[in-house]
């Protein structure tokens, strides 16, 4: 399974994501520059964390207009798996591939620590290798990560089993403790915490590998 990691000016977790996939999942990964109008022959796309375009205007707002995002939109519409981590999640909501928005943390502080997450659904290519209710510990490092959406959207996400991950100790004021969500077709997931930073014992844990293993398993199943 071939992974493409999108690189925007200001991305800073692109190499972490590449390393997690290439070294720790053991699948090939390549970088795709933001000016590229095509994704080439990849089977999954990762939008990594960082500060694309310096977070100018709003986090993820400028990235939405980059040529590569047009290709990502087409890839997602065709059912390809797209994982947005941190700034990648912000880009996905700005693009409209996921509902809602991410705003300044309720406490205004940049939060950088490990958080516990509960897997709320295993019905997705990103969480199928986890168990429902399983607690995973991922690091967060974010300033504008308070998930907000109107009540109707939040109700809909819950009714359709599209909340993938919830914070056990909400670090940023996200509504309904939401840490990660799926689109209606379940092939696009955005999450604020960083699974790629916990993918081998040297990093303290390999909890994050669960996400990437799920993607590989879903891909193998679909073939």
């Amino acid at each position: 399974m071939r992974f493409g990691v999108i690189v925007f000016p200001g991305s800073n977790c692109d190499h972490d994501a590449w390393y997690a996939v290439q070294n720790n999942l053991g699948q090939p990964a390549e970088f795709i520059w933001h000016r590229s109008p095509s994704l080439g022959q990849v089977d999954a796309v990762i939008l990594p964390g960082g500060f694309s375009y310096g977070d100018y205007l709003r986090c993820g707002a400028i990235a939405k207009f980059s040529p590569v995002m047009e290709a990502v939109r087409r890839f997602a519409a065709a059912g390809g798996p797209v994982l947005g981590i941190c700034n990648g999640f912000q880009i996905l909501v700005e693009t409209g591939l996921l509902p809602g928005a991410l705003m300044r943390n309720a406490g205004l502080r940049f939060v950088c620590k490990r958080v516990r997450l509960r897997v709320e659904t295993t019905r997705s290519p990103f969480t199928s290798e986890a168990e429902k209710g399983q607690v995973l510990t991922f690091p967060v490092a974010h300033g504008e990560c308070r998930y907000v959406a109107d009540e109707r959207t939040l109700d809909e996400l819950e009714a359709e089993d599209r909340v993938a991950l919830r914070y056990l100790d909400n670090p940023n004021g996200s509504l309904r403790d939401i840490a990660g969500i799926l689109n209606r077709e379940r092939n696009v997931m955005g999450l604020m915490p960083h699974p790629e930073r916990v993918t081998e014992p040297l990093m303290g844990s390999n909890d994050g590998l669960t996400i990437f293993r799920s993607m590989a398993a879903a891909f193998a199943l679909a073939r």
């Binding site: 705003m103 300044r104 943390n105 309720a106 406490g107 205004l108 308070r146 907000v148 109107d150 004021g173």
Partner: peptide, 11 residues
């Protein structure tokens, strides 16, 4: 107006 503005509150 329905959205929390923690920066405004701090100011």
């Amino acid at each position: 107006t329905t959205v929390l503005d923690p920066q405004g509150q701090t100011v």
